[in-house]
């Protein structure tokens, strides 16, 4: 009887262990996935082909944008997160094209495509020795704002190439659930 119990317990333990192995084993997508270069807000994160430094993050309810000479205001059901990033190329000219905002729960938001005509957004071409600033604009849920991670890579399929992973740190929420420092309207017509 004792022996049977011991066997059952052993089998259960083995099953749990196997489950752990199955879950924690890296899959193909991870094996050939991008190689992260970690950093914090304000750090210069050095990848293979480019360097990125997220200077500041701003939140707003509306964005003011110049469109063919007309001023337009974009609203959102969530919140606009605008990250100003300084890019530099390492050894050769390159283009940084892809960025996403990964919230604390793992939801990832690509850059918005609503403002594709505006200046200073990705993709941005960078040359060695000539750093350049750009804005990364995301439309996110307010609860995905704090402790988010910014993911930046040169191209979409950056298999085994660098991806900057910049942790943006905690953001204090105001009474309305939006970040405390949220402005009503951010003026993107101003130079970066």
């Amino acid at each position: 009887m004792m022996r049977k119990m011991a066997n059952v317990i052993l089998l259960l333990l083995a099953t749990a262990l196997c489950y752990g192995l199955q879950v924690s084993k890296p899959h193909y997508a991870e094996l050939i996935g991008p190689i992260p270069a970690y950093g914090k807000l304000g750090d210069a994160v050095v990848g293979r082909g480019f360097e990125a430094r997220a200077a500041k993050v701003a939140f707003s309810r509306n964005l003011k944008v110049d469109r063919y000479g007309q001023t337009k205001v974009f609203t959102t059901g969530g919140i606009w997160a605008v990250v100003t990033v300084e890019f530099a190329a390492s050894a050769q000219s390159t283009t940084v094209a892809v960025a996403s905002w990964r919230g604390p729960t793992g939801l990832a938001y690509d850059q918005t495509e609503r403002l594709s005509f505006a200046d200073g957004l990705l993709p941005v071409a960078i040359d060695p020795g000539l750093p350049k600033k750009a804005r990364l604009i995301f439309e996110v849920r307010p609860d995905e704002v704090s402790n988010a991670t910014l993911l930046i890579s040169e191209k979409l399929m950056s298999a085994l190439d660098s991806q900057a992973e910049i942790s943006l740190g905690p953001v204090a929420a105001g009474a309305d659930g939006l970040p405390a420092e949220t402005v009503d309207t951010l003026d993107l017509t101003q130079p970066i």
Partner: peptide
């Protein structure tokens, strides 16, 4: 048998990952 076999498997996958990190990023 089961755990050992799967452990070999698991270690191989992590060794793959570790080697890629050791070699570092390169062009595709």
């Amino acid at each position: 048998l089961i755990v050992g076999y799967r452990l070999v498997d698991w270690l191989a996958a992590w060794a793959w990952l570790g080697t890629t990190r050791l070699i570092g990023p390169h062009e595709l």
